[in-house]
Design a protein around this nucleic acid. Structure first.
Lengths: 118, 118
DNA sequence: TAGGCAATCATACTAAAGTACCATTTTTCA
DNA sequence: TGAAAAATGGTACTTTAGTATGATTGCCTA
């Protein structure tokens, strides 16, 4: 009888621990699902932007320069970030102006925002 | 005997449904926790920005110049829009740089966006 | 009413941005 | 594999942006 009681208790404890364990797993799974769903949106947004960028015929490098430009960096800083010369940055920026139909970098930034490129 | 079997089955089914229900609750709780943790940072950042925005103490004219600047206009164009000289625009812009802690207008635009000023 | 502040404008200057043109190397792809 | 596109970079130049400084006017308020 005592043994039976003990074993019953032990089984209950085991069950309890098991349940808590499962519960933790499920909660963790929920957090993970939320994380994945969040990142999916972000990734899709980036893909969408790249699609749009492609439609505007922006090259990969031009798009990268655009991103840095939006961040408020100078040509020199962009050059340092992308490991290219300021000269090359100016070339990319000029091409961006043509493709975005902008006269200045501030106008280019504004238009890029309106086009949901960034 | 049959009844007993049925009732046992019914109890198992109830338990099963209950378990699934609890599992869903736990997963939902996990998603919620992830969501809350994610937004906590964002909310804190916004509160911090609103405080900063208030401390920035931009004058009416400076704010107006900022808006035009964000629109991608040149100093000359801003001057024409606000019916003031380009010289005055430059003064306001310089003051904006000090208050926003920016070196360039693109950086000022970027910081203003982050501060939810525009 | 004197002092502070916002707004205005000017001049003179330096720094950065932007244009035009050309050239070379890499990548891509039909 | 050969042509096209992309990426890189240089020089020389013009334009715009940004800094420094000083000055005037009008408005609010302690």
């Amino acid at each position: 009888m005592q043994l039976s009681k003990y074993s019953l208790f032990a089984r209950d404890l085991t069950n309890e621990i098991f349940s808590v364990f499962i519960a933790c797993l499920l909660i963790g799974f929920g957090v993970l699902v939320g994380h994945i769903l969040r990142n999916k949106q972000k990734t899709e947004a980036i893909l969408l932007n790249q699609e749009k960028a492609h439609q505007l015929d922006l090259s990969k490098r031009e798009y990268e320069v655009l991103i840095e430009m939006v961040d408020g960096k100078s040509n020199k800083e962009i050059a340092e970030t992308l490991f290219i010369s300021e000269s090359t940055v100016k070339t990319h920026v000029s091409n961006l102006f043509i493709k975005l139909d902008a006269k200045r970098r501030t106008e280019a930034i504004h238009k890029a925002r309106n086009l949901d490129l960034i």
